[in-house]
Design a protein around this nucleic acid. Structure first.
Lengths: 349, 349
DNA sequence: AACGGGTGAGAAACCGCTTTCTCGGATGCA
DNA sequence: TGCATCCGAGAAAGCGGTTTCTCACCCGTT
């Protein structure tokens, strides 16, 4: 590690300054009053020798690292990138650094990775949307202090920070309903993803609340290509009366819109499209994409706030779910007149 | 740190197994032959006590961490995200983890951050596109082993991994020249950025190689908004005969295209537009954006390869620059006939 | 003037592990 | 059977700090 000038240690400084190691340590940490003369000599010696205390030795005696680890399934995911950034900035403000542990979507290695990462750090942030719940609970027990992101874990003794996908979807459905849509399609994300499951719950609740509505669920994906390729499916759904599509996330929505435009389908004239996440590009798509904004950086900061409390020996704070903010833009509009008429006809029938 | 079961140490294991600490250590590291009976007893005790060796203690005695740090000016930048991901995956394969140190664009804190980060790790990856060269050289000297990303540092004793922006721009100009463009505009990035300076060098070289061409340089930025807002500037340039625009990066290009479409300017009919980086969205823009593809993940892997050599005491390997690959797509096409005629007229004059 | 309390510096223990050093016992050869 | 050799296990010395403990000294009080 930081062996700058070929290993100058605190003993060297002490000798050079003609004082004891203890005094050097005291000067360094400033937690006790030390004779000003000694302080000056020690500081001079430190400068002269280019001394920097060994982080490892410090860690050993303090039993901590000032480092936390973040376990993610995929660093390519904008959500995790945003959280990492927010987390890293917030933690840095308290002198902590963040270690990344990308499990590259290998769900069965996540547990081992989490344990290993935790072992080199003071605490853990666990993003494991696919990990089976039983395993997750076990891991959480073993790696405390830990904060879990975007999972539902009733009864577990762990702070959870996440996005209220259920509310998000419900708000979106409300928006579309208000525009006059009655028959929607949801283009699902990765089947095993917990946040997709939450969105599906939102879909169910919405339908329960609006019995006059119908929401079809189609398999989708999480990337631009997935949306692009889902266009055929979506057009099929449109044949069957769907007037608006909610995509798993913005990437899927953007990919879908691209393909739709190629196929001559007008958004939102023929079909409304909405995404989730409000990535920067959403505002720059044409038409501008209606989306649900998620404060990624703030999530990261919140994760750190929770973790800091835990590290300091504080209590497990309550779960916090950020309610996505609906950003209605041009990609959603009232359904085409024909569709409305058809629906009205159906209603009457 | 990893105090799982309230601090069970190697001494506890030794006592439990009725052997010496040294034997436990030997069993753990398997670097010496140990009596099979002892091995079994030790392993049993380890399991029984739930023992895991302290990373800090190990670090102290070994003088290393198995951790490297990556200093970045902005984790939100897709390039650095990609490099981080590639780096993290490659390093993980060798048992190393990556610490992130986001300097949040605060150039004057970069040096301190780098030193601090280096001090907790075995090596450093330095992404500091804005750091003044003198300071960079000083830092590089002090934090070795280190790999520098995307900087030109002639004569310095440090491996450099980067993108050949000069070649990239030249290839792009070649492409546009081939399409018939003679008067281009370059929408610059952050003025102090080293990679922007490289692109500008590319512009200069291109002009030198094609005296019949003209390339105007306009201030730009690095984000979607910057491109969006540069539209007026670009249209002004078009008035003055510019038929193609090269943007600092894809985000700028995408933002620009959005605004141009809003203003009724046809890309590439009225004006060609090209980006740099080949972000995923480039392929999904309409028109699909011509760009220069940069293998972000591979850069990260290459950085690790260099760093690993250095850590192992190997030599400073040569600088490696990835030549961006031109991805010609729909956003660049021959200039409009009127422009060509005008240019031809000028040529004749 | 003697004594108690307080202050600050140094000696040494300790954090938990690795590694060298030492030594006893087993083995090989004479 | 006796001696040299080898092997493996334990004792102990670090790694480089922090922190407790001890003690000398200075000050104030009676």
């Amino acid at each position: 590690m930081g062996e700058r000038s070929r290993g100058v240690t605190i003993a060297d400084v002490a000798a050079h300054a003609g004082v004891s190691q203890a005094s050097v340590s005291r000067v360094l940490n400033g937690k006790q009053t030390v004779d000003p003369g000694i302080v000056r000599r020690v500081q001079a010696s430190i400068a002269a020798l280019g001394y920097a205390p060994s982080a490892a030795a410090r860690s050993l005696v303090h039993g901590r690292n000032d480092t936390i680890a973040m376990v993610v399934p995929d660093l390519g995911n904008p959500l995790f990138q945003g959280i990492l950034q927010g987390l890293s900035l917030a933690a840095a403000a308290d002198g902590y650094r963040v270690l990344v542990a990308d499990t590259a979507e290998r769900v069965d290695e996540e547990e081992a990775t989490a344990l290993e990462a935790r072992h080199r750090c003071d605490a853990l942030v666990l993003c494991a949307p696919r990990m089976p719940e039983t395993r997750l609970r076990r891991v959480v027990d073993r790696v405390a202090p830990v904060v879990v992101v975007n999972r539902h874990l009733p009864g577990a003794d762990v702070p959870i920070v996440g996005v209220d996908y259920v509310r998000g979807i419900r708000d979106l459905v409300e928006h579309l309903h208000g525009l006059g849509h009655r028959h929607l399609a949801y283009l699902g994300g990765p089947p095993s993803s917990a946040s997709n499951a939450e969105r599906l719950r939102g879909v169910e609740e919405a339908v329960a609340a609006h019995p006059e509505m119908r929401i079809d669920v189609h398999p989708g994906g999480s990337r631009l290509d997935d949306g692009y390729e889902a266009a055929e499916t979506v057009l099929g759904a449109r044949e069957r009366g769907v007037t608006a599509v909610m995509a798993y996330n913005d990437l899927v929505a953007l990919g879908l819109m691209t393909r739709l435009r190629e196929l001559g389908v007008d958004v939102p004239g023929d079909l409304s499209v909405a995404g989730f996440d409000d990535v920067p590009m959403a505002r720059f798509a044409l038409p501008r994409l209606t989306s649900l904004s998620v404060p990624r950086g703030e999530l990261g900061a919140q994760v750190w706030a929770r973790l800091r409390t835990l590290i300091a020996g504080g209590p497990v704070e309550h779960t916090v779910l950020y309610r996505p903010r609906l950003e209605p833009r041009e990609s959603t509009a009232p359904p085409p007149a024909t569709a409305t008429a058809a629906a009205a006809g159906k209603d009457r029938a």
